[in-house]
C-alpha cells in the first residue's frame, strides 16, 4: 500500500529506544519498523492541535498526509481508547483510489466495491447503486 508511518510523543529518543527494546520488540519481532519521533516541547503537537497543556503530552491523533504534503484525513481520541487500524487502512486505500482515478467512494467503500462518478446524471440517482447496508 506504500504508506510511511511516523509516530510521535513527548518522550525523549532515549525513552523511545528503551521502549522499543524492552516492550515493542516483544509485540513485533525486531520492533516497530518506523521512526519514533521526540516532540519534547510539544511544539509539533501544538501545530497539529493534539498537545494537551494540562498533562504535557500529545494525545492520540493521527493524520493521513498525501504525497503533496496535504492532510486528507485526521482522527483525534482522548487517551483511554485505542485506535482501529482497519479503518485507517480503509481510508488510506480510499484516498489513494480517489487520487488515482478521480472517482469518489461512497460510505463504507472497500477496495473492489463500486465507486461513484459525480456528474449531472448521478443527481437523485445514488439510491440506485448505493444501499444503506453498504455503509459498514
Amino acid at each position: 500500500m506504500g504508506v510511511q508511518v511516523l509516530a510521535a510523543s513527548t518522550d525523549s529518543r532515549f525513552s523511545h529506544k528503551v521502549w522499543q527494546e524492552a516492550e515493542l520488540a516483544k509485540m513485533v519481532p525486531g520492533g516497530v519498523p518506523f521512526p519514533l519521533i521526540s516532540d519534547a516541547t510539544g511544539q509539533i503537537g501544538r501545530a497539529y492541535g493534539v498537545y494537551d497543556e494540562e498533562s504535557g503530552v500529545d494525545i492520540r491523533g493521527r493524520f493521513l498526509i498525501d504525497p503533496d504534503g496535504v492532510i486528507q484525513a485526521m482522527e483525534v481520541l482522548t487517551p483511554p481508547v485505542g485506535r482501529n487500524v482497519t479503518e485507517l487502512i480503509r481510508q488510506a486505500q480510499a484516498f489513494q483510489h480517489v487520487r488515482e482515478t478521480g472517482e469518489v467512494t461512497p460510505a463504507g467503500w472497500q477496495p473492489g466495491k463500486p465507486t461513484l462518478k459525480p456528474g449531472p446524471d448521478l443527481v437523485g440517482r445514488v439510491w440506485e447503486s448505493w444501499k444503506p447496508a453498504m455503509a459498514s
Partner: peptide
C-alpha cells in the same frame, strides 16, 4: 517524505 503517503500518529507516551 514528500511524494509518499504518510500516516503521522501522536500518542501520549512510551509505556
Amino acid at each position: 517524505y514528500r511524494g509518499q503517503w504518510v500516516v503521522l500518529c501522536f500518542y501520549p507516551g512510551d509505556f
